[in-house]
Amino acid sequence: MEPQTRILLAISFFNVITSFNVLSLTYLTDKTVTGRITNGIPVAIGEFPYVVAIKVEGQYRCGGFIYNERWVVTAASCVKKFQNVLDRVTVEAGIVSLQTPESSQQVIRIESFYPYDSYDEFLTGPLHDLALIQTRSPFTFNSEVNFSYYDESSGEEATFIGWGIAETIEGGGSYSNELRQATITVNSSICQSAYGTSYQNAYMICTGDTQSPCHYDEGSPLVQNGFVVGVMSRNTGCDAIGTVVPTIYTRLSIYYTWMVATAGIQPLPSLVQLSRSFSEPEEN
């Protein structure tokens, strides 16, 4: 089904939507960076309005992105350990700093977690490392807080956005208090060499650079051409400067059917964006 056809069917299903917010899509730049994501380029408020911080009792634990008004996409490896402490978990949007409150900040509590049905860290490793978070109240969309569409990965260059740390907390590492971005390279062969059969290209995306996500970046988005194409699942760490770190991301397009069945459709784009061409995600 063509994307435009799918959108028109959604309009028919929900009658006619007469007002909706204009989506702020962020396009990739030709910036290059050195070092890890924690040493990447600082992000400005509104530059990636869909990126969120997932916190437990106010402490940052992983990232995600806004799917629609009541749902966030992240990694199952992030939320599985928080299943029994729902009342202590919040999603924070409209921020770039983890410490300094901002006028654009929206702090929303969690209703429930929905890890992908077949995910089992001990049996499947990084396979199906995907989860949806339902919030108790909706996000208020504006230029600082908004959702992102997702698409199939294409090309070799991508942007990763996150707050991750350079070392484990136990090892004395500290969070990157400011949201940062890094330009990285998609390269499936490096993960096939590093992870063997546990890396499945049909369900995963691989990057390998001297810039890479870090600990606690699970669930944070990988972006190409203004669309989220994956969420960070795992890597072997990012402590060694100059070391190529193979990183696995969950390939989002494969999970279209499950995401729609669980969280519903995404908001409609503006009339300008309606004409934007994007590929149809494969069904699982």
Rank of each mutant, 00 (worst) to 15 (best):
Y114T: 15
Y116A: 09
S118G: 00
Y119E: 04
Y119T: 01
T124C: 03
H128V: 01
H128S: 06
D129W: 10
I133Q: 08
Q134V: 00
P138I: 02
F139K: 13
T140Y: 02
F141C: 14
S143L: 07
Y149I: 12
D151G: 10
G155Q: 14
G155A: 12
E157H: 11
E157V: 03
A158Q: 08
T159E: 12
F160G: 07
F160V: 15
F160S: 08
G162T: 14
W163H: 14
G164L: 08
G164H: 15
I165Q: 15
T168G: 11
S174H: 08
S176W: 05
E178A: 09
T183L: 12
T183A: 11
I184F: 08
T185H: 13
T185D: 01
T185P: 02
N187D: 10
N187I: 04
S189K: 03
S189Y: 05
I190F: 02
I190N: 08
C191W: 00
Q192C: 01
G196E: 01
G196D: 02
S198I: 09
Q200G: 00
Q200K: 14
A202R: 07
Q211S: 15
Q211F: 01
S212E: 02
P213E: 13
P213T: 12
C214V: 04
C214Q: 10
Y216A: 07
Y216S: 11
L222V: 01
F227C: 00
V228H: 13
